[in-house]
Computed example of a mutant assay.
Amino acid sequence: MNEAHVKLANLPLAALRAFEAASRLGSFRDAAAEVGLTPSAVSHHIRQLEASLGTTLFLRQHRKVVVTPAGAELGAGLGRGFAVIAAAYASAQAPRGPLVVSAAPDFAVRWLMPAAKALEAEGITLRIEASTRLADIAAGECDVAIRLGPRPASPLVSERLASSPVVLLGAPARLADGPGLAPEEIAAGPLLGLSMRPKFWTEVLARLGQPPPPRAEAVFDSLDAALRAAEAGHGFTYAPEMLVAEHIASGRLALVHPRRFGTRTAWSYWFTTRPQSFDQRAIRRLRDWLRTALSGKAAVAPGSAGAEARRGKSIIQAA
């Protein structure tokens, strides 16, 4: 292999682009359509490359061309190189309009609204769709979705933002006689469940030495709604500890049992997007901001989410 260094300024980029397309597609005509040239121009570029390289890249046969081993090696290398260039170009592109982000209302208020305020200074505008409905990312309903639970299925790309064990919660008034409740008191309910974890109470009560729930649970599609019901004294619920730390600190909710659940299979928040969008600058910056915020390193003061939500300039659509 010739290891002579070739200066970037001396590379025949137009010819290399035409050749890469022709080697990948196996046709001068199809390559011409892709790169916006005529077939004769593509053929001319490739002959110039062969002359400068001193090797044959294609065997010209009747009505078809066949790439040579040298041509296949060059084409594969160029394909990898152009893919890197395309990714860098996409990453540097400014967003065309707001970045649409779907998340549950509780997550949107706690973290996305402060993120919108912080990223606005970088020219990145978020449109936050706060809803319990799972937006169809593949169909283009949003650019990013924040999912709580197992890793979303491919072909989407997902990165774990944070994980948290789950705690049992109730109104502070339910704990008037002490710092916690006995397992049988918890089992007496009412128990407030979540549709995303339909077997949670059965499994937790078994671990606490209690029989299955003696009565039908109230089951919520929204974690936020379940938390509000618990705050109002309508029963006991559960949530990722990191999500309800402020509720507990402010006295709106209390731990009804000291035990944490799911420490081995902790609930995770996933940052999910389409593969072609994963490295775009705006999406990368949002992902980095959220990862830092959820790790506790961001300057997000306790109790500030509501104030940021009132001051933020992003568009929030509650569904």
Rank of each mutant, 00 (worst) to 15 (best):
R110Q: 14
D136N: 11
G97A: 07
I124G: 10
V84Q: 12
G123K: 02
E129S: 01
A92W: 01
A118Y: 15
W111Y: 14
K117Y: 15
A86C: 10
L134F: 05
R96C: 03
V101G: 11
L78P: 06
A130N: 11
A83R: 11
R80Q: 08
I137M: 08
G97P: 10
G123I: 00
Y89S: 13
G79W: 02
I124C: 10
R110F: 05
D106K: 01
W111R: 04
M113T: 08
A94F: 09
F107E: 06
A121F: 14
A116K: 12
D136G: 08
I85H: 05
A94Y: 07
A115G: 14
K117W: 14
I137T: 03
P114A: 15
L119Y: 11
G79Q: 02
G97E: 13
A103G: 06
L99Y: 03
G77M: 05
A83K: 11
P98H: 09
R80M: 07
Y89W: 12
G97C: 08
A135Y: 12
A83G: 12
L126P: 05
A83W: 09
A88H: 09
G81E: 04
P95M: 09
I85C: 07
A103F: 04
D136I: 00
V109H: 14
A103S: 12
L134A: 05
W111I: 00
F107P: 07
L99V: 02
A104I: 00
A83T: 07
T125L: 13
E120S: 15
D106A: 08
V84N: 03
D106V: 01
G81Q: 07
L126Y: 12
D136Y: 08
A87E: 06
A116W: 11
D136Q: 10
G123F: 12
A87V: 03
F82C: 04
P98I: 00
V100T: 05
V101W: 08
F82G: 03
A104Q: 11
Q93A: 11
A103H: 06
A86P: 15
V109M: 14
T132C: 06
A135I: 00
S102V: 00
A88I: 03
R127N: 13
V109N: 13
P95Q: 09
L119A: 12
F82P: 09
G81D: 04
P98M: 09
A108L: 12
V109P: 12
A116Y: 13
E122R: 02
K117D: 15
R96A: 08
A116P: 11
P114Y: 10
R80G: 07
L134Q: 05
A90K: 06
F107T: 01
T132E: 03
L99C: 04
Q93M: 08
I137N: 10
L134M: 06
P98Q: 10
E122W: 03
P114M: 13
A135L: 14
I124P: 04
P105R: 07
